[in-house]
Structure formats: C-alpha cells, structure tokens
Amino acid sequence: MNNIAEQLSLAYYNLNEKCNVLATDNKVVALIAVSKTKPVAAVLEAYRAGQRLFGENYPQELAEKAQQLSDCQDICWHFIGPLQSNKTRLVAEHSSWVHSIDRLKIAQRLAEQRPAHLGKLKVLLQINISNEPTKAGILPQQLPELAAAVAQLPQLELKGLMAIPAPGDSERAFAAMQQLSLQLQQHYPQATELSMGMSDDWPLALTYGATMIRLGTAIFGARDYKQE
C-alpha cells in the first residue's frame, strides 16, 4: 500500500526544491492534497503527517468526510470540482474554499447558503483556458463580467483563478493564466491566488506563478473510481 506520510514528505521536499530553483517563497505556495474517492482513513493518515489542506470534487463526499473528521478542527477543505445548483448547500456549509465558480447562479447560491458564523467563503473563478467544449469554466473574455458580479456578493471573497489545461497545452495555458491573474489583480488586489498544476505538471505551473497546486495521485496513489 502507498505510504501516504512518505509520499507527502516527498511532495513537500520536491515543492521546496522547485521553489528554491525559481527563487519563489515556498510559504506562498499551498499544496492541496486531493483526496477524492479516498477513504477517511487515508485523509486521517495525511492529517497525522501534518497535512491540513484537502481537496474534494464531489459535494456529498466532501460533506461526509468533513463530518467524520469534525474533531480535526484545523482541516481546511477546498472544493475543486464542478458544482450543480442543487448541491451548493453542502459545499457552502463544509468548505473554506471553492475553486470552480463558473456561473453567477452558483456563486449567488453559495453566498445565500454560507452560514454567517463561518465567515466568508473564499472563491476562485474557473477558466476554461484550453477552450474545451466538455470542460467547465468560463472563457477568458467572460472573466471581467463574472468577477465584477461575484465580487459584490456577501459572504463570498473573490481570491483568484483556477484552471485545468488540456493535455499537451499546459505551458501555453499556464502562461495565459498568469496574465489573466495579473489583469484580475489590477481590479481586485486581494485576488492573488492562482490554482493550477496537478501531480504531472505542477513544476511547470509554479514557473508561471501558481500559488496553489493540487496533488492527488502523488500523495494517495491511483484512484479507485469503482467506489463512486
């Protein structure tokens, strides 16, 4: 079985090495352990090894894990998957971050359903940077309008952008996302986060200014989708 603690330690070592090469402050890069389809025991093993940021793709799975691990009060849950309007409440009540906002309706529902005592939900706007017809996200030219609308919503805090490039398009896409991020920050100085890069391309993402990388397989091993 994959030793999660060892893999996590290796991931942080590699992250620090890459940051040193790029002269990037490793404290500004968040490593999100993507635990989708993995059992609570795996999340707990990573938690005991020091990991606090976890990413989930499915609202029900996020809610169930958050409830089962409620004693681990310093866990920070990041919702990173596509979100349907009938599942927004689960995410609003259990996550601290949402990376995948691509419709105003979803953002409005999250704002309405976010419990006041939890503070503002931090959100990223997902860009369909490779213009894939089957992938979620807005096109770059739609960013100003959606950003302006989301920034006005109570209980939400616009923090930046997220993207998942098409295979083979990573470098062009990451470069384009870096420019979009800089443009966004001109209007929303707090929107400094750039969530991009996964287990196979995160070093390249860092080269283009990623502040959040999402690692699943590199930490937890291959996923078993038969469990879904």
Rank of each mutant, 00 (worst) to 15 (best):
I4C: 06
A5N: 03
E6F: 08
Q7P: 00
S9D: 07
L10Q: 12
Y13W: 04
Y13D: 03
N14C: 11
L15V: 00
L15Q: 03
N16I: 01
N20T: 13
V21T: 08
T24Q: 14
N26Q: 14
N26V: 14
K27P: 00
K27L: 11
K27M: 06
V28N: 08
V28L: 09
A30I: 07
I32G: 04
I32F: 05
I32Y: 02
K36W: 05
K36T: 01
K38E: 02
A41P: 07
V43I: 15
V43T: 15
L44M: 13
Y47I: 02
R48D: 14
R52T: 08
G55Y: 11
P59T: 08
P59H: 04
P59E: 10
E61G: 02
E61V: 09
L62C: 08
L62V: 04
L62D: 02
A63M: 13
K65F: 09
A66H: 04
D71C: 09
C72D: 03
I75Y: 03
I75K: 03
I75E: 10
W77G: 13
W77P: 12
H78C: 06
H78G: 05
F79G: 12
G81T: 12
Q84E: 09
S85E: 07
V91W: 09
S95K: 01
S96C: 11
R103K: 15
L104N: 05
E112H: 12
R114A: 12
L121I: 00
K122P: 09
K122W: 01
L124I: 00
L124A: 03
Q126K: 11
Q126N: 03
S130N: 11
N131C: 09
E132L: 06
P133L: 14
L139R: 12
P144N: 08
P144Q: 07
L146R: 09
A148N: 05
A149I: 01
V150I: 13
V150Q: 04
A151C: 07
L153D: 12
K159H: 05
K159I: 07
G160Q: 00
M162W: 04
P165T: 04
A166N: 10
P167H: 01
S170T: 03
E171V: 10
F174P: 08
F174I: 01
A175C: 14
Q179T: 06
Q179K: 07
L180A: 12
L184M: 09
L184C: 10
P189S: 05
Q190P: 02
T192G: 06
T192I: 15
S195A: 14
S195H: 01
M198Y: 03
S199Y: 11
D201V: 10
D201M: 08
D201C: 07
L204M: 14
A205F: 08
T207A: 15
Y208R: 08
T211Y: 03
R214V: 11
G216Q: 03
G216F: 05
F220Y: 15
G221C: 10
A222G: 14
A222D: 15
R223F: 06
D224K: 06
Y225F: 15
